[in-house]
Structure formats: C-alpha cells, structure tokens
Design a protein around this nucleic acid. Sequence first.
DNA 1: ATCGCTATTATGTATGCACATATTAATCTG
DNA 2: CAGATTAATATGTGCATACATAATAGCGAT
Lengths: 233, 233
Amino acid sequence: MTDLDTISWRGIHLELLRRINERIWPPGSLIPNEADLAAEFGCARTTVNRAMRELAEAGLVDRKRRAGTRVALHPISRVVIDIPIIRLEVEQRNAEWSYGLLSQDMQPAPARITSRLGLERDTAMLHVTSMHFADNHPLLHEDRWINPAAVPGVEEMDFAAVSANEWLIQNAPYTGGDIAFSALNADSKLAELLEADDGAAVFVVDRITWDGQVPVTAVRLSYAPGYRMNTRV
Amino acid sequence: MTDLDTISWRGIHLELLRRINERIWPPGSLIPNEADLAAEFGCARTTVNRAMRELAEAGLVDRKRRAGTRVALHPISRVVIDIPIIRLEVEQRNAEWSYGLLSQDMQPAPARITSRLGLERDTAMLHVTSMHFADNHPLLHEDRWINPAAVPGVEEMDFAAVSANEWLIQNAPYTGGDIAFSALNADSKLAELLEADDGAAVFVVDRITWDGQVPVTAVRLSYAPGYRMNTRV
DNA sequence: ATCGCTATTATGTATGCACATATTAATCTG
DNA sequence: CAGATTAATATGTGCATACATAATAGCGAT
C-alpha cells in the first residue's frame, strides 16, 4: 500500500508518474484498471480517472476502452509554448518595448500568400510591415498580410499607433491556425532592419490563422540574431 | 436558451468558445458562474466545470476562486509541439531514416555544458556526436553530452548501432527539461556535415533534461537548411 | 480610520452511482 | 470452420451532493 499524504488526484497522478518513471510499469506494459487502482488508493474511480486522463493528455500512456491503459512505447515529449503579444513578451523581460510602422497599403497579395490561405489569385489584401524593438534594439521584423474580408474596419486602421500584432489579437478572433518555425539567412534589406550582418541566421515564425473557414492573416516574424524561444517540459 | 444538440461538456465547451469568439463575452468581462450556466444549459455544475477548465487550460479565461471567471484580456496562443524520436519523425513522412555515429568518447565536459547542468567543472561526461539522414540526405546533426552518473551502463553502450536519441528516451527517464529553439549560422564543419553552404541558417534545438535533481543529458540538434517545425493552434 | 474577525461567494475536488461507448472475447449458426 | 451475433470489460461521461479552499466584503471593536 502506498502512503499518499493527500488523497487527491494530484497525489495519485504523482504516484502513477513515479511508477512509470521508475519502470515499475515499463513502457508498453498494461496498467491496472481504474477500479483496481481506486481500490488500492482507497478513493473513487472518478479520482483515478482524473489522474489517468492527465497522463494520457501528456502522452505518457495510451488508453483504449476495453483494452485498458498502457505505458506509451515511444514517450513523445509534448512541449507547450505560450506565444504572447510581442509587447508583453518584451515587457516581461523588463525591457522597454517600442514599435515602428514601415509600410501599410492595400495591394494584390502574392501567390505564395493567397495559395496558402486558399484565396483567389491577386486578392487585394492589407499589407503591413513593421519593426518591434526591445530597449531600442531591433527585436523582430513583422511582415503581415490581412484579409480585409475577415476583419471589417481594418482598412481604416492606422497601424502606426498600435501594432497589427496586438490589434488583431484583440479584434480579430480566430478559431485555428498553422505555425511553422524555421531558420533563414537574412537578405540585405532584412539584415539592415535588424542591424545584423548580411546572411545572418534569423529565427523565423510563419503563422496563418483562420476564423472558421475564413482566412484572417498570414504573418512572418523574423527575429534578430541571438533570439531564443524557451520553454520547459 | 441555447440548442445544444448534445448536452455534453464538449457541446458546452464549444458554446462557451463561440460566445468568447463572437465577443458576446468580450475580453476582460466576467462570465456567469458555473451554477448559473449549469441552470441555463440544464446540466450539472460538474459538467460546466469540465468545459470551463478546458478553456482555462487553453489560456482563454482566467479563473479565481471567489472572483469568478473572466475572459482573458491578452489571449495568448498556446502552441503544443510534439517532439517524437527522430527516427519516427522521419518515417512518419514516409522517408527512409538512417543514422551514422561520428564520435563517442568520455571527456571532461566544457564549461558551457557543466554550468548549464549544474555539474562540477570538467566533470567527465560521455560525448556523442552523430548524423541523422532522411532518404540519405543529411537531416540533422546531434551533439550530445550524457551524465554517466545519471544513466548507469551508458559508458558501455555502442551508439553506432542505436542512436543516443532513441536509446536515451527508452532507457533514461526524466522528470523535466529545458528546451530552446534558435537559429545559427553553420560553421564550415557543420556546413560540410549537413551538405550546406558555409554560414547557412540552421534551425537549432537545445535541450537539457534532468531526472529529479540529477542532470541527465544536454543535446544540440542542428537541422539542415530548409527544415521547418510545424504545428497547429 | 485601522485592524481583525466572520460571513459570503465562486471555484476546486471528492464520492457513489448510473449509463454510454469502444473493443475484444466468447458463442452461436449455417 | 467462417462469419455473424452476443456478452463481457475498461474507459468515458453525466449527475447530485458534499465539503474544501481562496478571495472578498462587511462588520465590529479598539
């Protein structure tokens, strides 16, 4: 019998974690069912279920209805990254955020944008480019295309006063999106904006979002050399 | 009253999502409490709680005990990235995975490793470098330091036969880790290994893991140019 | 007016029960 | 014996209830 000081689902969760980590239940093995565990821990099945569900969401166990619960054979590590508004990310590091609009105009979007968003070729979209600074050093370049059909009133906005990044998050709800992280060499124009050397390696985030079926925006964030996106497991 | 075809927590979850998305409950506003919502939906408070908890975990609402639930003012997007074993990642794309060991030896770890892991200067660690290929094209370079004190038997392993990436995941449990994503210019040696140009922008994953208080491994994965890490929101 | 106690309120968690659902094992039937 | 039907089983979900816990509001005493 196990001494769980607190008989809560958290306690049980930890105990199950321990048994998996210490290979008491090795990868691939079958875990006792919820009813048995509930009996062992002296709690309701609901409580065990809660603990187990947490393990399943973390990818540590696989559950199937009549087959039971097994320790995952290939424990993937599931990394959670929180992407806040850029201003907040900067301010959280106690740096001073500032921002500058580079360009803002309606124009036919290039094919690489329209095709990814599933829009007609040469659809007129709002193109906004800008820079974000942390303590007056260039932090990132934002290159954004906005579907005016999805965001009423966006054509009248002046993104010199408020960043598109922030305004859209507040004013253009979305239901889903794709994100891709990659590395690119800065071309001379980008290098100059980021005050970096030509060809410097730049961390790039490409993101497109939709609201239901309607594409909202496609954006590329190019971070100044040295930027690291951190997280914990 | 709302027509929820299925009175399940998922249905309620969707309905709450809709009200947030459509600004029926604008950012910052207070949401009715669980009991009231349960009455509205004609279900038990438990069920509403389940739906609300999901929203809270996604960062869409903030909940405080006596204060109630508010729609998050700065909706962060919470991205979940699954990092599988490299072999599986390759095979999932229907590519043929192959692997080559470059070096494997015990040596005093450099300060940048020991300091990040909280180990004594010049601690002897197992240094393993290798390459992973997809369809015989270089995919990534793996540069790994392993704490032999944390992984008994690792000194006798031959990582020519099985990749350290895979062996460790199967044999060295961990309880936590740090991950950082960044972009770096390939030096000439790395460029040659990746069959890329000198200075090419390389997507880099730095990861350290520990088991309890004991550091297990520090690894840098440098991906060949063009690699993108994708996910959805 | 300030400090400290108490009541109130909304969420957090646990329980016992019931039924739903996916999956597998066993059994029946031609 | 093959194929279809049925039973058994573990997880998934919902409900009513109860109590725990955090945070606030209000009250009272000094």
